[in-house]
Design a protein around this nucleic acid. Sequence first.
DNA 1: CTGAAAGCGCTTACAG
DNA 2: CTGAAAGCGCTTACAG
Lengths: 358, 358
Amino acid sequence: LSTNANYSHENVYITVFFEENRSVATVSRALNATGVVTPKLKQKILQVASRLQYVPNSGARSLITRRTHTIGVVLPDVYGEFFSELIRGIDLAARGRKLHLLISTTHGSAEEAATAIRAMSGRVDGLLLMSPHLDTQLLRDNVARNLPTVLINSNAGAKSVAAVSVDHYGGAFAMVRHLASLGHRRIAHIAGPVGNFDAKERIRGYRDALKKFVPGASEQIIAGDFREESGYRAGQEILASNRRPQAVFAANDMMAIGCLYALTQGGLRVPDDIALAGFDDIPLARFVTPALTTVRVEIADLGGRALSRLAAAMESEAPSTPVSEILHTDLVIRASCGARRSPKTFAPAVRRSTKRKA
Amino acid sequence: LSTNANYSHENVYITVFFEENRSVATVSRALNATGVVTPKLKQKILQVASRLQYVPNSGARSLITRRTHTIGVVLPDVYGEFFSELIRGIDLAARGRKLHLLISTTHGSAEEAATAIRAMSGRVDGLLLMSPHLDTQLLRDNVARNLPTVLINSNAGAKSVAAVSVDHYGGAFAMVRHLASLGHRRIAHIAGPVGNFDAKERIRGYRDALKKFVPGASEQIIAGDFREESGYRAGQEILASNRRPQAVFAANDMMAIGCLYALTQGGLRVPDDIALAGFDDIPLARFVTPALTTVRVEIADLGGRALSRLAAAMESEAPSTPVSEILHTDLVIRASCGARRSPKTFAPAVRRSTKRKA
DNA sequence: CTGAAAGCGCTTACAG
DNA sequence: CTGAAAGCGCTTACAG
C-alpha cells in the first residue's frame, strides 16, 4: 500500500496520510465528519489535507457509497434561449442540493439519445430526459433499472415514468380565446414539427378553442418546424393566399418572428392589417417591432421542478409512483395582436394567468 | 463474490456473468474489445450484456484506468446567449472525442468558483475554466496538480496556464477605427464591469484606436456592467450631457441595446442623430431597430477550441507548455452606425475581418 | 477514540 | 484463449 505515497510528483490520495502515521479510516472519518475523531487530531488532518490539496477520488467513493451525487441531463440541444433557460433552472435547483450535472445532447437523433442515456447510466444517480424521440420502448431498453428518471415535456413514458411538462394545451387554448375575444374569426396556426409532443398539444389547444369561441370557423393549420425560417415561409404563404387570416398564432416565438418579417416585407402592418401571436416568451419577443403577444412559459421553473422531482425520487427508498406535473402558462399581451400598444420601457410585461388544474 | 449476483432485483454488475460461468476478466476483455476472446464467446457475452442491460460502473473503471473521460466546465452562469453558444461549442467538440461534460456555475463569486473547482477535481480528467474571479493564487490553491486546465477569456494564469481568448483589443480597435472612418470625432465608450478582463481589453482597444485615428480627441468612458440596464442608464447620461458624442461604442451588445432604448425614448434617431455600436454579435443584434453594428465573436468556436486544447493537453504525457490562443473577431456593419442600411432579409450580415496576429 | 481488514466493481499483468 | 489474483482509493462494520 505504501507504494502509493507518491504525492510529491503525482496526484494526492488519501494514502499519503500514512506519512503522518494515520490510518485511512481515521482520515476518512475526519474528512467526512462521520464517526468520532478527537478535535485535535481532526484539525491536524484537515490541515494536512488542505496543504496537500487533497480531493477524494469520487470514483472510489461512489463505488462504496453507491452514490455519485451526479444527475444526467439529456437534451436535444444546448443552443438557444429555451435550453439555456432550462439548464439554468436545473442548475440552480441542483446547486442547492449539491448535485453535479452531467450534460449530454442528442441533436434530435433517437440513436444518440439512446447512446447518451446508456453512457450516463453507470455514472449518475438519476436522469433528466428531454427528447422528441423518447418513447416507452426506448426508455425501457436503455434506462438502467431502478435509475430514477424524470421526463421533461414528453409523454413518452405515459403513466410509467414521472414527467414535468408545460401546459401547452392550456396556453394555446387561452391565446386563441384571446384572439377570438378581439373579434378575429379567421385565425391561422403555424404548427411545430410533426410528431413533436409540444406541437401536438398546442394544435389541440388551438383546435378546441377555435371550436368553442369561434363556432363555425374553419381551421387553418400551416406546417412549420419551430425554426424561424419555417415561420418566414408560412408568412409568405399567408401573403399569397386569397383569403388572408385576420390573426396568426404561431406555435412558438421564433416562427412568429420569422412570420413577422415575411408579413412586414410583404407590406402588411402588424397588428393593423393582421394580428400575430407566438408561444414561449423568449427574451427576443419583447424586442421585435411590434413587440410580440405570446404565451409565457416559465422555462427555468420547468427545469427546476423536474430536478426537484428527480431529487425526491432519488431520496426515497421505494420506487415512487410516477407523477405527472403540468406547469401553467401566462398570456403576455403586447402590441402584435392589437389589444394594446407596448410602451418602450423596462416595465415588466403585462401578464394574465391561464391557471389550469393539472 | 457471488453474493453480488443480484441482478434480478437490483442493478446489474459485471459479476452477474458468473451465472454464465464466465470470469469477469473475460467479460471485461470482450466488452472492451481489448485482449483476445473467441468470436463465439465474445458474441455470447455481448448478447447477455445486452439482455441484462449491463452498463459498466464508471467509478470502478476509472479507479483502475485513471480516466474519467469527463471534462469539468466551470462558468459564471449558463444564462444568456453568450454562455449558451459557448456550451454548444464545447459540447460539440466533446462529443467528437467521446468526452462527458460536468458543468458548474459560479454566479460571479470567487468562493463558489473555488468550491466548484475543488468539487470537480476528483471526478474529471481536465478543467475548462471561465470566471472573472480567477487569479493565479486561486488557481494554485484549488486546481489539483497535474490536472490539465484551459482558461477561457481570462489572463489569470498569465503564462503558467493555457488559455483561449477572444481578441477583445483588436475587435474594439477595429470598431473605433470604423467609426472614425465615418467621420465621427466624439466617440464615447460604455465600459464593462471594472476588473473584468474582457472589459479592460476592450477599453484598451478603444483608447489606442481613438489616439491613432482621431488625434486630439478626448476619451469619454461611461461606466457599465455588461447588463442591459446599465446601457440604458448610460444612454440617459448621454442624453443629459451638454456636448453629446457623435458615436457610442458599447462594450457589449446588451448595453448597446439598453442604450438604444434610452436614446430612442429621448427622441434621438439612431443612426441619424447619433451612431451606435456594440460587441459580441448576439442573435438579438440583428433584430433590434436599427440593426446593430457590432463586433462578431465566434463564441461556439471559442468553446470548441478551448476543449480541443484541453483534450490535447490530456493526451500528452508530459505537462505541456501552456499556450495562449487568441481568436480574431469580425466587424459586422449594420444600420445603427449609419454606414449602411440593413435590409430586412435573412441574407447573412456583411462581415469584415479584423484578422490580427495573436 | 483509533486501526486493521474487508470489500465496492472493474482491469490488467500473470499463469496455465 | 481463458481464468485466478491483485489492486485501484475509498468507507464501514468490527475489534481493541
